Simulated scan of single mutants.
Amino acid sequence: MSRTRLAEAPYNQSGDLITYVGTNPDRVHEWRPNTPFPTMLILEGTTRGMSAARFVWRSDKGHRYEMFMMDAVDLMKRDAPIWHGTADTWWMVQKRGKNYGIRRATHDDLKTAGHVPGPKSDCRACDGVAYGYESWCPLPPTPDVPHQFRGGPLTRSCLCGLGSKDNIHTHNRETL
C-alpha cells in the first residue's frame, strides 16, 4: 500500500506522541522529523477516542505511543517481533484522519531514511542510534548484493534467503 509520507510528528514535553492536535496546538512541545526509530514497546492496553479504538504502548524509556487497530493487525500478521506483550523493532508515526499513531516501519521507510543492508557500522542511517545489542542495520540483505552472512533465528540460511555457503557470502567465511 502506498502511503503519503508524514514529514513531522507532534510530541509533548514528556516525549510522548500526541495522538490528536486539533484545536489545541499549544499542547505540542515539539514537532520532530518523522524518521524510523528503534524502541522496545510494552503493550499497556487499549483506549477509545471519538473516531477510533487504539492500542496503547509504553516504550522501555517510558514514552507513550498509540497504535491504530488496523496497524496492530498488520503488525501481528507480518513477521511480528512480539514476545509476551512486548515488540522490539523500528517504528514510524503516521496520520489517519486527524489522529496520529505508530506502525512498524516498512522496508520502504527504512530505505527512504537511508538504511543499507548489512552491518550497522556500514549504515549511515544507523549512526548514533542507541540500539546497541543489534549489530545489523534493520534492512535485511538481498541476494543480488554481496554482503556478510546474517543468519536467521531458526535456520542456517542467511536472511537474504541463500545458504550460508553461497558465494555472495564468501568475503566473510571466517564467521560461518
Rank of each mutant, 00 (worst) to 15 (best):
L154Y: 11
D108I: 12
G151A: 08
C126K: 02
P138F: 00
T47A: 07
F149V: 01
L162T: 00
T175N: 07
R103T: 07
D74R: 13
N12A: 04
G151L: 03
R150I: 00
P141T: 01
P117W: 07
W83R: 15
T4K: 13
M70H: 15
H29A: 06
I102Y: 12
G49W: 13
D166C: 06
N34D: 02
R27A: 06
E66R: 14
L75G: 13
C137K: 00
T89Q: 11
N12E: 05
G151S: 07
N34A: 01
G114P: 03
K95S: 14
D122P: 01
C126F: 04
S59P: 07
N99T: 14
K111I: 13
S2R: 11
N34C: 00
H29Y: 10
T89Y: 13
E66P: 14
R32T: 03
P119F: 11
G101T: 10
N34P: 03
I82R: 12
P138T: 01
D60G: 14
T35P: 01
T46Y: 10
A113K: 09
T47I: 09
E134M: 03
T89W: 14
L139R: 00
Q13C: 08
I102H: 08
R5W: 13
V116E: 06
I42L: 06
R103D: 04
D166H: 11
M92S: 11
S51F: 13
W31A: 05
V28R: 03
P138N: 00
A130I: 09
C126N: 03
P143E: 02
L43W: 07
M67R: 09
R96M: 13
D127H: 09
D144K: 05
W83P: 11
I102P: 09
L41R: 03
W136S: 00
M40N: 01
P36L: 00
V145P: 00
V56E: 13
T175F: 07
V28W: 05
H147S: 02
C126Q: 02
S51G: 09
K98Q: 15
T89G: 08
T112V: 07
D74P: 10
L154W: 07
A7F: 12
V56M: 12
M1Q: 10
A53V: 14
V56L: 12
T86W: 09
K61L: 14
T23P: 06
G128H: 04
W90V: 05
D127K: 11
N167C: 10
H29K: 08
T155E: 05
S14C: 05
R150N: 04
D122I: 02
L154H: 11
N24C: 05
G163N: 08
K120N: 00
P153S: 10
G118T: 05
N99V: 14
